[in-house]
Simulated scan of single mutants.
Amino acid sequence: MTNLFSSFDPSTSLFFPLNWTSTILFIMFIPLSFWLIPTRSSSLWKKILTALHLEFKTLIGPKSFGSTFIFVCLFSLILYSNFLGLFPYIFTGTSHLVMTLTLALPLWLSFMIFGWINNTVHMLAHLVPQGTPPILMPFMVCIETISNLIRPGTLAVRLAANMIAGHLLLTLLGNTGPSMSFSIMWILLITQILLLVLESAVAIIQSYVFAVLSTLYSSEVT
């Protein structure tokens, strides 16, 4: 590697960056659960998706009307992309703000347009929390407006930063391997394995957090 961040470089060709094809590799794993005899892994995955559907339905409320499937698909896409990034020589799409903002910004913008057109009074009421003193109401409107505007940015940065941090740590520790003596190499190997387990947990948690926060944002506009 020429520098520390070269593993996150998306430019591999002149016309179309081939690294971004890693974001659609998860399609190879999907048809197996639908066209073949169900296996234990596919049955477990269907149970997980059913549990997520029920949880998202509870968060959104009785007016979900099947919108939970959007967030279940969003969770699946981010989870597959996070896990594929843990394999060697596979580009992690979710470590770039280009992809995470592409996921977060249209969702947030559609929620805002829907809410302000159909539930204008409800959206205005959200700008002033219940029990706010009258003298603080102008300040609370400003604070709530700013916090609402930065939501897609916080969603995107949270996911990208968590993916970059773990991968950089694994890369840094891996680069110190050739300069280490054989007697302490086992410490590095154990540390790398533990970090890989931690990154697997982060991949699940961050996809779940992204989907749950998107669900909560959508529940506020109905």
Rank of each mutant, 00 (worst) to 15 (best):
L52I: 08
L97I: 02
F139G: 14
F87P: 04
L97E: 02
F111A: 05
V98P: 02
F34L: 09
G61W: 03
H126K: 14
S22G: 06
M137V: 15
S42K: 03
S64Y: 11
P31W: 00
A125R: 14
I135W: 04
N82R: 01
G93Q: 05
F91N: 04
I143V: 11
T21G: 01
M140Q: 15
L25K: 02
N119Q: 12
F83M: 09
G131Y: 02
I60V: 12
T58Q: 15
I27R: 05
L54E: 10
L84K: 00
S147C: 15
Y80M: 13
N119M: 02
L44H: 12
Y89M: 07
P134H: 06
G85F: 00
C73P: 13
T120P: 11
F34R: 08
L124D: 06
M137G: 10
I113F: 03
K47C: 03
G61D: 10
L25Q: 06
T132N: 09
G115Y: 07
L84F: 06
T145N: 15
F114T: 04
I24E: 08
A125S: 13
I60D: 09
F139N: 12
W45K: 06
I143G: 09
G66V: 02
A104S: 11
E55I: 11
F114P: 08
V141S: 08
I135E: 15
T50Q: 12
S81N: 06
P88S: 02
L25N: 13
Y80S: 13
F29G: 03
L86V: 03
H53W: 06
M99V: 14
W108L: 00
T94Q: 04
K57Q: 15
L109Y: 04
P129E: 03
L77P: 09
F91R: 00
N148Y: 06
G93M: 00
L25E: 07
P134V: 02
T132M: 08
L86T: 14
F29A: 10
I30V: 04
P129R: 05
K63I: 08
H96M: 08
F83E: 01
M28G: 07
N119Y: 12
F139Y: 11
L25T: 14
W45G: 15
L32K: 07
L49K: 10
N119A: 11
P38F: 02
S81V: 10
W45I: 07
P88Q: 01
M112N: 07
I90Q: 08
I78Y: 02
G85Q: 03
V98F: 12
M28P: 01
F111V: 06
N118R: 15
I60E: 09
F15M: 07
T132P: 14
P138E: 05
F56Q: 14
Y89F: 14
T100Y: 02
Y89G: 13
F71Q: 00
F91W: 03
L49C: 11
P106S: 09
L14E: 09
S43P: 01
L18N: 13
I24D: 05
M28I: 12
I30D: 03
H53M: 10
L44E: 07
G85I: 01
K46N: 10
T100N: 14
S64P: 10
L105S: 14
E144K: 13
P62C: 08
W45Q: 05
R40G: 11
T68H: 12
T102Y: 00
I146Q: 06
H122G: 14
L79M: 05
M99P: 07
I78F: 01
F26R: 06
Y89I: 04
L84R: 04
M123S: 01
I117N: 14
H126S: 10
I90G: 00
S81Y: 03
W108H: 13
T94F: 00
